[in-house]
């Protein structure tokens, strides 16, 4: 594989970093694998004449024999395992990416404002974050589920509610140092308002850090979703998610391992891919590591 090392004219630091990322083979393979899994989860179920919630009473607890239509067999209720895993993947991946995105956006804005404004505002905002850090996570989720009547929304809210804190702290530290930089003073001398400075100067300059942290946030959210669903607090039957599929798989572990291996294996592959991508991003974006 030949790599063009000559830098093209005028690439921003960000573009250079992306180029560095593309040269990381492991990370690029992970991106492809992850994209395949995402495509499979969202398109795959259409290939089958039934959904994951339809029970097929002719095939209850069918084994994985790779025969049509139940390639990986069915569960105790005659529901197709592969389709359930793919549909569960839709839920898990959506919550993972959307949760990381929402938590990231809230955290970045909160942190950027606190860091840029500084002083007493910063103090109050960060104390609030510290107080929220103190809440036990699981109890918070249970409380929110009761408050919001359970289901996907409560789970999502609870995950976002706990996970926006860390990006806020990270960005705040960076915004603080950026706010002292001379280009921010130049922007003020150029008549820019505070909100414009935060959005146009502070946030873009925090982006590389946020991207690295965000890529670690996605697996974290997927894991929390699985963990909470595993505990029975999150996604409820008959709706599938990787968490509750794994939970169903573990209870049948002694007799039938495939119920655990298929969702568990897929989750493991996705998490590995995301971690490799995060690693690649960190290598490409973090100047200290080079």
């Amino acid at each position: 594989m030949s790599v063009d090392l000559a830098p093209a004219r005028s690439a921003s630091t960000f573009q250079l970093q992306l180029r560095r990322f593309r040269q990381n083979r492991l990370a690029m393979v992970s991106v492809v694998v992850l994209a395949l899994i995402v495509a499979l989860c969202f398109l795959g179920p259409y290939a089958f004449p039934f959904t994951g919630e339809d029970a097929d009473f002719d095939f209850i607890s069918a084994p994985a024999e790779l025969t049509w239509p139940h390639l990986f067999g069915t569960d105790d209720f005659g529901r197709d395992l592969l389709v359930r895993v793919l549909e569960g993947g839709q839920v898990s991946l959506t919550i993972g990416f959307l949760g990381a995105l929402v938590a990231g956006v809230i955290g970045v804005l909160y942190g950027a404002i606190a860091g840029y404004v500084g002083g007493r505002t910063d103090g109050v905002m960060m104390r609030l974050v510290e107080i929220l850090y103190g809440f036990p996570y699981v109890i918070l989720v249970i409380l929110l589920s009761i408050l919001l009547g359970g289901g996907t929304l409560a789970l999502f809210a609870a995950i976002v509610f706990t996970l926006w804190l860390t990006p806020a702290v990270i960005v705040r530290a960076q915004a603080q140092s950026l706010a002292q930089r001379e280009f921010v003073q130049a922007a003020r001398a150029g008549g820019m308002t505070g909100p414009a400075i935060v959005l146009q100067h502070i946030v873009p300059n925090c982006m590389s850090t946020v991207l690295v942290y965000g890529s670690l946030l996605v697996p974290e959210v997927i894991l929390s979703e699985s963990f909470l669903s595993f505990l029975g607090i999150g996604i409820k039957e008959p709706q599938a998610s990787w968490g509750n599929l794994i939970q169903a798989g573990t209870s049948a572990m002694d007799t039938d391992l495939r119920l655990l291996l298929l969702p568990g294996g897929l989750l493991a592959v996705v998490l590995l891919c995301l971690n490799f991508i995060a690693d690649g991003l960190r290598d490409a974006f973090d100047p200290n590591d080079r």
């Binding site: 630091t13 001379e182 280009f183 003073q185 130049a186 008549g191 100067h201």
Partner: peptide
Amino acid sequence: RSEMQIIFQDPVAALDPCMTLARIVSRP
């Protein structure tokens, strides 16, 4: 503020690394 401007000691730190020069200069 267009009537009164400032230039800085550290010329590189005074430019936002994420922006092209045209954007930096035209921003005010």
